[in-house]
Design a protein around this nucleic acid. Sequence first.
DNA 1: TGACTATTACACGATATCATGTAATGGTAT
DNA 2: ATACCATTACATGATATCGTGTAATAGTCA
Lengths: 129, 129
Amino acid sequence: MKRCRTSSNSIKDQKFISPDTAGELMNLFKVLTSETRLRLIHALILKEELCVSDLSNIVEMKPQAVSNQLQRLVDKDIVASRREGNQIYYKINDPCVINLLELGLCLLEESKKKRPRMEKFEVSKIMAT
Amino acid sequence: MKRCRTSSNSIKDQKFISPDTAGELMNLFKVLTSETRLRLIHALILKEELCVSDLSNIVEMKPQAVSNQLQRLVDKDIVASRREGNQIYYKINDPCVINLLELGLCLLEESKKKRPRMEKFEVSKIMAT
DNA sequence: TGACTATTACACGATATCATGTAATGGTAT
DNA sequence: ATACCATTACATGATATCGTGTAATAGTCA
């Protein structure tokens, strides 16, 4: 992953970010605030290119729902599409989301190590008492 | 920033993430999908510790709105609070968000370099035609 | 105690999001 | 042409979110 060494928007700038910048940042993260979109993006990272029905099978959701979310990702240039006969194949277009997803999964696991959640069998033990 | 070298949830695992994992990941990103929260978090990263009225002044919003968002951040253990007389001071509790915010700002700027957006005066040029 | 300040709790209205169902579109094959 | 398949477009209802206003709570100071 490439690092940012010089950035006018770096946190080290010691000045507060503008509402505009915060808004753009929000839009960036907003892409990743849907279970469905995250699973779609993750699948596309793994498999490079998949059509709607492939993705529909993977996430076990209706093709319409998948298509809707893909359309939103296209709007933001996150993914790109290509038609091949009847199928329309999608692939990641903006590598940013790969970095974000990677970091997200990484942080998720670290926090699990530090603050282990209660396991299901423990819950059932409590429920049984 | 610490890197993840071995991770059972790594993208390299070549298996699709579960709905559960995607959900947790979504919750992580959801924290960052509010202009207000992003500005609050950013301010707390810069200044280490600030009370509600400080933050209220910085983001130019009502103390209630600020308090509401801070409460949501407390619920997710993102920030921690400390009372000192009348004021209640908040500080970042979960360093994850610092990494995410940093990467987000970094990616934002890179994408601006690559795909420069239309400037306002250009828009007005078009509007004038 | 009582006045005052800072913060929080809670209900409300406006807005956005998501999955669904139905209908339309684009492409293939007979 | 027409039947068929994959995908998209669009409207809908359920749900979540955000900022606001009002009221309650916690602390300070006289």
